[in-house]
Write a protein that binds this DNA or RNA. Structure first.
Length: 114
DNA sequence: CATCTGACGACCG
DNA sequence: GCGGTCGCCAGAT
């Protein structure tokens, strides 16, 4: 399987921003959803400048285990990402991944529900 | 070819 | 908020 599009998207994640596996899967329209994105990241080639640490689980959960877990935390923290012991503040750092094949909707300043 | 597992996500208690 | 279960796809054994 060619994960190139996945790595390509991850490489586009701005510093200090993060994405979830589900978001990546949906942005690239990957079959199987988040698991497929996870598989792609698991085989993430080193030395390619891929900010793999910016990809988290749903809700900003840090799913990666040691020894990469601590490394990921260190890198994120280094980028000024606000986080708890095992979760990242998605509200502040979730990045709007560009939609491939689908039109991106303007979700800025939404009323939410109050 | 059958089965298990995994850098997942949503749901339920 | 946390742990357990089911569904999903692909690779490994």
């Amino acid at each position: 399987m060619s994960w190139d599009p996945v790595y390509k998207l991850v490489k586009q994640i701005p510093r200090g921003r993060v994405l979830t596996y589900g978001a990546v899967a949906r942005a690239l329209h990957l079959p199987g959803g988040a698991r497929t994105a996870g598989r792609a990241m698991a085989g993430c080639p080193s030395g390619k400048g891929i900010p793999w640490h910016r990809v988290l689980g749903a809700g900003g959960k840090l799913l990666i285990r040691e020894p990469y877990a601590s490394l990921q935390r260190k890198l994120l923290e280094s980028e000024g990402v606000q986080m708890t012991e095992r979760r990242v503040n998605m509200k502040l750092h979730q990045w709007s991944a560009p939609r491939f094949k689908k039109s991106a909707k303007n979700r800025s300043g939404k009323t939410r529900k109050n």
